[in-house]
């Protein structure tokens, strides 16, 4: 199995790596690029803990081959804050206690950011359905939904 050379952009930075043809983007991020913010909860697209965006689309990085990252733009949790300034979603997750163990949090933040870019003013139901692929076992989701909504309100300038 010959490794593949991939040129990509991750969180705005041009990045090159080599990977095995059957290696997932998640494994590349975690094991080759030291970007361990994306987590493997299942490896089969059922939990959303590995959420990233590829060319602006929300995906599970466990269901993308590393080889497919060639020529695309990948955004991960590590690129969400702007230097020392947290994204409003990150700040509201802390302020509203929207995390307990925190292992699902990176995936949920990436997913929620993708939602608010598409729909800045979602209903609770829309938030819940958008995030249905991000399992959280600690919170019962209540505070997560509220944190997304309060971040959305701030981002709308309310």
């Amino acid at each position: 199995m010959k490794n593949i050379h991939v040129s990509t952009t991750i969180n705005g930075d041009p990045t090159e790596f080599i990977c095995a043809p059957d290696e997932s983007l998640l494994d590349v991020l975690r094991n080759r690029l030291a970007l361990t913010g994306a987590k493997e909860g299942c490896g089969t697209g059922d939990c959303g803990a590995c959420s990233v965006t590829v060319d602006g689309r929300l995906v599970c990085s466990c269901l993308v081959l590393g080889a497919e990252a060639d020529g695309v733009e990948v955004e991960t949790i590590e690129g969400m804050a702007d230097g020392d300034k947290l994204h409003p979603l990150q700040q509201h997750f802390i302020d509203k206690a929207a995390l307990q163990c925190g292992v699902c949090t990176p995936g949920i933040l990436v997913a929620a950011k993708a939602l608010l870019e598409k729909n800045p003013n979602p209903t609770d139901t829309e938030v819940r359905y958008w995030l249905a692929g991000n399992l959280c076992r600690c919170t019962g989701y209540d505070k997560i939904i509220k944190a997304v909504q309060s971040a959305a309100a701030e981002m709308r300038g309310e």
Partner: peptide, 21 residues
């Protein structure tokens, strides 16, 4: 009271180190 948790920043930025990290 309800202050921010001390491990909050690490957990919203992906820096927190879990078992597999």
């Amino acid at each position: 009271t309800r202050p921010a948790r001390p491990d909050g920043i690490d957990k919203v930025t992906g820096r927190a180190m879990y078992g597999a990290d």
